[in-house]
Design a protein around this nucleic acid. Sequence first.
RNA 1: GGAGGGCUCGCAUAGCGGCCGAGUGCACCGGUCUUGAAAACCGGCAAGGGAAACCUUCGUGGGUUCAAAUCCCACGCCCUCCGCCA
Length: 422
Amino acid sequence: MIDLKTLRENPDLIRNSQKARGEDVGLVDQLIAADEARRLAVNEFEAVRAEQNTLSKSVGSAKGDEKAKLLESAKELAAKVKAADSKRAELEEASKAILLQISNIVHTDTPVGGEADFKVLEHIGTPRDFAAAGFEPKDHVELGKVLKAIDTERGAKVAGSRSYYLTGVGALLEFAMVNYAIQLAVKAGFTPVIPPVLVKPPAMEGTGFLGQAAENVYHLEEDDVYLVGTSEVPLAAYHMDEILDVDNGPIRYAGYSSCFRREAGTYGKDTRGIIRVHQFDKVEMFIFCKPEEAEAEHAKLLQWEKDFLNAMEIPYRVIDVASGDLGSSAIRKFDCEAWVPTQNAYREVTSTSNCTEFQARRLNIRHKTDDGTKAVATLNGTLVAIPRMIVAVLENHQNADGSVNVPQALRPFLGMDTLLPA
RNA sequence: GGAGGGCUCGCAUAGCGGCCGAGUGCACCGGUCUUGAAAACCGGCAAGGGAAACCUUCGUGGGUUCAAAUCCCACGCCCUCCGCCA
C-alpha cells in the first residue's frame, strides 16, 4: 500500500502514477475524502473515550448518591462511545478498502504506456544463424521428444493441459540449473531457502496477489490456504510483523520452490510446449533493505539475472517494462527475454521488480531509523524459472542431429557435455 | 481424530474487575567506578496514531460492565499424551 502521508502532501504524484498505469485516477480523490472522514471519526471517538476513562476512574472512588449519579452519566457516555467506535471502525474499513486498490507509484524512468511500450535497454549475444548452419531448428517440444527429456502428452493425460513431465536429461537439466543457480546465489551472499508453497491468506494478501492477480492463484477452499505462484510470497511474508536489522546491509534470500499458476484467461496463448504451464520450479531472489538502497539493489538483481543467462550462453535482451504492464507492487520492472529461435522472438525468462516500501507496509515489516520505525523496501528477481530456461537452452544449443550442447557452466553439475538423442 | 496445558513489552515470568499500559529477572543501550574489562551501582528500554493533551494494542473476534490482561462465548496458534501416518 502507498504511504498516506504522500497522499495528503502530494496527491498529484499518485494521480499521475495511476494514470500512467491505466488505472482508476478517481480512487485518489475517493481515498483523500475517505481518509479525512476517517481521521475526523477517530478524533471524535478519542475525545469521548478520554472522557469515559476519567469518569470511570471517579466512579470507583465515589460513594452513595454521588456514585449513583456518576453511574448514570457514565452509562450515557458508554452509549456514545459505542456509537463513535463503530462509526470509526466503519470509516477505517472503507478507507482501507480504497487504499488497497491503489498501486505503487511508478518510477520516473519507467516508460509510460501499455504492454508494447517497453524500452529495450540492451541486447546481449547474437541469435544463431541456423540457415547458415544448414538446418532448420527444432522447437523444444520436438527436441524434448528426441532427447526423451520432456513429455507433454503424458503430462496432459495425467494432469491436464499445460502439464508436463521432465524425464531423464530433462530432469537432470533441472537439477543442474538449480544447483548452479543456488551456488551463484550463495556466492553473492544470499541465504538459500526452501519455503512452504501452501500459505495462509495474510501472506497472499500482504504480497498483493489477491488483487488483479487473484484469478491466477489456486485456492484450497477446504483449508483456506493458497498455492503460491512464486516463492516471493513465502519469502516476503517470512518477516511479516517483524522489525529487521538492515543497518549492516540488505537481507537476501534465494528461495527454491514449485510455483503454481492457474493461467486463467490465457487459453489461446503458448498452448504448445512448456512456456506457459500450471506448475514449475523456480529459484527466486528476494531482498529486504533500506528504502534508499532499493534502486542500487534492483540493479544488482538485474546483474545476477544477467550473470545466469550469460552462463547459459543464450542471446537475450533486457527490457524496461512499461507502466501499464507493472505489477501493482512494483515501481519499476526489468525483464530478461531469451531468444527463442523457432518463434523468432525474445520471450520473458526472468523478471525483477523494485517494490519499494509498498509490500512491507502491508506486511508490517520495518526497521529502526533515527526518526522512528519505518517500512523497509522489498525487491524480487527470478534467478531461474526452469521450464523457460530449458526451452532457451535446448533451442539455442541444438545441433542438426537433435543433440544439444550443454553450456559450460552446467557441465560439472550435469556430468555431460552433450545431450544425445535417446 | 481424542484428552489435557498454555498464549502478557526481544526472551522468561508476575498480575485481586478500578491504584495495570502493566511488576520482576535476563538481554540490550547510556553513565559512575577501572589502565582496560568483568562485577557492583545509577538511569533508560514494547508498538502504532497524534504538534500535544490524549487514544489504541496483554493470541484474534465477539459479549457482560460505568470500567476487562483479569469474567463469559467462539475461533486461531503452540506444547504434552493417545490414535493414525509419509
